[in-house]
């Protein structure tokens, strides 16, 4: 079977390539990156002069987390903005209905929208790889790490894009969808700690040592923890959770397994992708006129009772 490019991706890329926004965005981003790079370089230079007078190169490895975190920030900020307006934007242009009368399923529409946002953000990621590569090659990180980093960025972009598209399917206005996306961030980043907190309280009052237990499973869905673990492993070779030194009998097999850093990252990545799929499926459900009560016409009378 021939695999065809999702027509929405093609169209979105065609349209955005012709708009000035992406050019200016890239320009601004490159400028920012250059400035950040130069500042970081001068700091490293100053530092290295005061301690080890001739070993500037080993400090270049710290460029990696700086650039990487900047990218993570950009992905988390920009992707929801790109996707949040995508469905409400099509509805505003009144092209969404036509799309729904074609053979595109709501899920492939949603997936196409998210993917096109991911590809557009990849322009930015790719633009910054030379700087990161400097950290890798000169600073002593492996090419494989650079590769995995880009994979995790794609994953993160899908994740944030799915949240954005879900919000876009719920909200009429793009701006409301962006705000809702950030609310979801707060819920996911903060909320996944709540079971652990409850567990910790409960554990303190009854019996001592297994302060995390299976409530740690929720952390798997938290990209922040995923990245903390990722950077810890890359930069120090250790794992965040290794320090806990779990006893298999005490914490149970699941937590024990997860406390092995590499396993954790792998499982966490799968969980984050699953969560993204859930968001996309929910968005697809929401935009399907045969499921929701919607199907309102933009600009016409608002649904009164439903």
């Amino acid at each position: 079977m021939k695999i065809k490019l999702n027509p929405i991706i093609k169209k979105d890329l065609q349209v955005s390539a012709r708009s000035m926004r992406i050019s200016w965005g890239l320009f601004g981003y490159e400028m920012l990156l250059a400035v950040a790079f130069l500042i970081a370089l001068s700091i490293i230079q100053a530092e290295s002069r005061s301690y080890y007078s001739n070993n500037i190169y080993s400090y270049l490895v710290y460029l990696f987390p700086v650039v990487a975190i900047a990218q993570i920030g950009i992905v988390m900020l920009i992707v929801p903005i790109l996707t949040a307006g995508s469905i409400s934007g099509e509805k505003e242009r009144q092209t969404f209905d036509i799309m729904l009368t074609t053979c595109m399923s709501p899920f492939s529409i949603v997936l196409g929208k998210v993917t096109s946002a991911v590809i557009r953000i990849l322009f930015f990621v790719v633009a910054s790889t030379p700087i990161m590569a400097l950290a890798f090659v000169v600073g002593g990180l492996s090419w494989f790490d650079l590769f995995t980093f880009i994979l995790t960025i794609i994953m993160l972009a899908f994740f944030t894009g799915s949240i954005g598209i879900f919000c876009s399917s719920v909200c009429r206005k793009a701006i409301a969808a962006v705000i809702l996306s950030f609310v979801f961030y707060a819920v996911i980043f903060g909320g996944t700690f709540i079971p652990s907190l409850i567990h910790a309280l409960f554990a303190y009052s009854s019996y001592g040592n297994d302060y995390m237990g299976e409530s740690m499973v929720f952390w798997l869905f938290n990209p922040i923890i995923f990245y903390e673990e990722y950077f810890t492993q890359i930069m120090t070779g250790e794992s965040l959770l290794n320090g806990a030194n779990f006893d298999l009998d005490e914490v149970g097999p699941l937590t024990y397994l997860l406390s092995q850093g590499k396993v954790w990252m792998f499982v966490s990545a799968i969980c984050i992708i699953l969560l993204s799929l859930v968001f996309m499926a929910a968005a697809a459900w929401k935009v399907n006129p045969l499921h929701s009560s919607g199907g309102r016409k933009p600009g016409k009378k608002k649904a009164g009772q439903e």
Binding site: S19, Q94, D97
Partner: peptide, 13 residues
């Protein structure tokens, strides 16, 4: 084939 009572366009297409 459906031709709706509005016409949505994309810029730049």
């Amino acid at each position: 084939g459906y031709v709706p009572d509005f016409f949505g366009v994309y810029d730049n297409l």
